[in-house]
Design a protein around this nucleic acid. Structure first.
Lengths: 265, 265
DNA sequence: ATATGTGAAGGGTTTCACAGCC
DNA sequence: GGCTGTGAAACCCTTCACATAT
């Protein structure tokens, strides 16, 4: 209830399932590549292979957009590029601001994939006064004090947060108050936002942790499942847990104080 | 069929649903924060709020791991931290290599969230000879020629690809041949890998495109749905599409050649 | 009294398989 | 003949609601 909703269907769109929306950018990328090679048409099979999905899924996805293919032939590449671009809202350009110009923020500012998809970096914002005025990716960094002004005068509705976790919620609140209604969050924190604001998150270390999970399973399989240790330990083990957890915690906290970057509000 | 499987259940784990695995890192983060504040126990309600999920989901998730809570009381924070860490395989440390030390690669090398979760950056690898020997995040960059040697001698099983899209598949092939079985891909390409290798991808621009989709819907709602334009256009419109697509493409390709970073193989 | 653990219901997503159209 | 578009089946995930345990 008090929890910030992290991911809403945003008015349930117009019947296009969320899972489909999430794949449209993939199709678009594959189609753009084909378009650059001047390929006129593709079959669902070919396009699916290029996008890394299966063809039945692709056809179902496209069926939500309309009937854009030709039976017995396939899809017109240029036509589909246009339709998907329009559906995604990429026929207009979206000014975005990036807040937090550290290593990651700078990398994002330099990332070609943004500009190449209709996203224009309208401003770079950082809380460090020493950063103000410095050019990053050809754009002068502005101080956080300017945030509201920048959002307002540029009509920015999409914000990217690349600050340390501790600052993220505060920055988020200011962005939202200034009129931003979509946020891409790179800080490892759960953001709380009012209804009507969309948040998507990218957490670099979470992806690695998911890989580690599967990697561990692979290793365990070689000599058969070591299910003895994996089986639900009986509650008596909890007594020993203080030590075990301390050992783990010790590992995690590591040699130096790297926790600050991970500490939520 | 010829398509590289991008996301496999990897031997179907031991019955822990993929969706649950993907949330374990979230719980772990929230629990770590509580642990640092020396909170001894949490209820599913509190923890769920901190992790940004609903409490029934959290309880179901935990039920796959075992019965780690106490009815009427809640969960022991330290105990849960340990159990989830173990389940994710974070009680051991994972050497990882990062290939492609551009802006993003450097940001990843500097990212505290890796080291703080048991991931150790064993090496940074780049194809540019001029980069060789340069220290990034305190680690000397090594040339791609060393790749196989580095993987082998460090027992690396997780690789991070942050190269331009055009180089990604090639790098991926070499990583896999050298023994890497889990790959985190930041390059905007579909990677093809043999069975038994897991790939997870993070595409920065895809997330923005999904936000743009919802943002567009919000804007459209204000004056009622402009479903006229959104309705499946009849095929005659395809004739005009060449121009429309060109206009879009023109926008996308932008002022300068920013496409190289996005061009798949 | 309070909060977990879990069958059962519900909703969404993927896959199948084939009718329909070129 | 070949390929799209789509009902129907299968599957997975989420949510509900309450039995169960402390």
């Amino acid at each position: 209830m008090a929890t910030g909703r992290t991911h809403r269907p945003a008015t349930r769109s117009r019947g296009i399932p969320e899972a489909t929306v999430a794949r449209l950018p993939l199709y678009l990328r594959a189609l753009t590549a084909l378009s650059e090679r001047s390929v006129p048409t593709v079959s669902s099979e070919e396009l699916a292979a290029a996008a890394g999905v299966n063809s039945a899924k692709l056809r179902k996805d496209f069926s939500y957009l309309g009937s854009y293919g030709t039976r017995g032939v396939g899809y017109d590449v240029e036509y589909l590029v246009y339709q998907i671009s329009r559906e995604l809202g990429l026929t207009q350009d979206w000014p975005v601001v990036i807040v937090g110009i550290g290593n990651l923020g700078a990398a994002l500012a330099n990332y070609g994939g943004f500009a190449s998809r209709g996203f224009r970096v309208a401003a770079l914002i950082d809380a460090d006064p020493a950063m103000a005025g410095k050019p990053v990716a050809g754009i002068a960094v502005q101080h956080t004090d300017e945030l509201e002004h920048i959002i307002g005068s540029n009509g920015v509705s999409i914000g990217v947060i690349a600050t340390p976790a501790g600052a993220a919620q505060q920055v988020c609140d200011r962005l939202v108050a200034a009129g931003v209604t979509s946020i891409l969050n790179f800080a490892p924190t759960v953001l709380t936002v009012p209804d009507g604001v969309d948040v998507r998150k990218v957490d670099l270390s979470i992806e690695l942790q998911i890989l580690a999970f599967h990697e561990q399973r692979k290793a365990g399989e070689e000599g058969g499942p070591e299910s003895g240790a994996a089986a639900p330990a009986d509650r008596a083990e909890a007594a020993a847990v203080g030590d075990a957890a301390a050992a783990v915690g010790g590992d995690r906290k590591g040699p130096d104080g790297d926790v600050p970057a991970v500490m939520p509000a």
